[in-house]
Design a protein around this nucleic acid. Structure first.
Lengths: 140, 140
DNA sequence: TTGACAGATGCAACCGAGTTGCATTATACT
DNA sequence: AGTATAATGCAACTCGGTTGCATCTGTCAA
């Protein structure tokens, strides 16, 4: 996993700055084990007595997304979630408690994708795959 | 495919009514070839000089969803899309023009699902799988 | 056919996540 | 240190979606 400091370094070389909010967002997302919403980010910062304006947070997220370091996703509802844009994976979400885990498929979807591309005459760029169910706690 | 009139009949037997907006929403979604947003629904109705309050539309969608006749989904952004809740399928979306097609996998994800369920100790209820790319028009 | 119950509808007011414009501050580089 | 410009904060705003409540209408039974 690429270190946050390396990323900040890289960002700087790309003409942006090492700002307080930038570092905070990256650190928070880098250590998160699941995708996080803007609201949750704000709460996490609040707990650590780190404050910045919501405008700043939204703009920071937008920037990091444009630069390709973080990724936006939606799991079943209209709340955007963010995670580091690292190795390709999917998600498994408990519909009861909301817990989210990362999933890596044993066999990817490459073959299926190829078939679809051919059949539909599409150039497939990416896909999203999410599983929903009940975790052990919630199902017992 | 279950006919809209049959659905309306069934809804009635379940203690609800055949209302103007209910019929309109169902007819529109039943003949749609892709998932539709609330905004697009409103436009479609406007074109046909069918008007009802936005509150009514939102409530109608909620009801139909609760009764299980329609399904809500999100493709990459926070705009909810709706479609008839029929046979299981996935979607293929052109990231350029927004065109959406239905996709049915040759081999489902059952095996993969079983493996994940076992490994993660989850009871998997469902999944969503969406592909994104460029359609023939947009890639040439 | 009529009456009554409850589901459906419309309207106005409201809510709140996310955005915009602009003035101010902070970072990096010379 | 000085300068350019990226980042920040603030207030005002936008707009999709919701809420409360009064009214209307579909359904069913007498």
């Amino acid at each position: 996993m690429k270190q946050v400091d390396d990323i900040l370094q890289e960002i700087q070389q790309r003409g942006h700055r090492k700002s307080r909010s930038r570092a905070a967002v990256l650190y928070e997302l880098a250590q998160a084990k699941k995708p996080i919403s803007v609201q949750d980010l704000r709460l996490l910062f609040e707990e650590q007595n780190i404050f910045f304006n919501k405008t700043t947070l939204y703009r920071e997220i937008e920037t990091l997304q444009k630069l390709g370091y973080i990724k936006e996703l939606f799991l079943r509802n209209d709340t955007a979630l963010y995670e580091m844009n690292e190795s390709h994976h999917h998600h498994l979400m408990c519909t009861q408690c909301g817990d989210v885990r990362h999933i890596v498929l044993e066999e990817g979807l490459h073959d299926e994708e190829k078939k679809i591309a051919k059949r539909e005459q599409f150039i497939i760029q990416e896909h999203s795959l999410e599983f929903f169910g009940l975790c052990q706690k919630c199902s017992s």
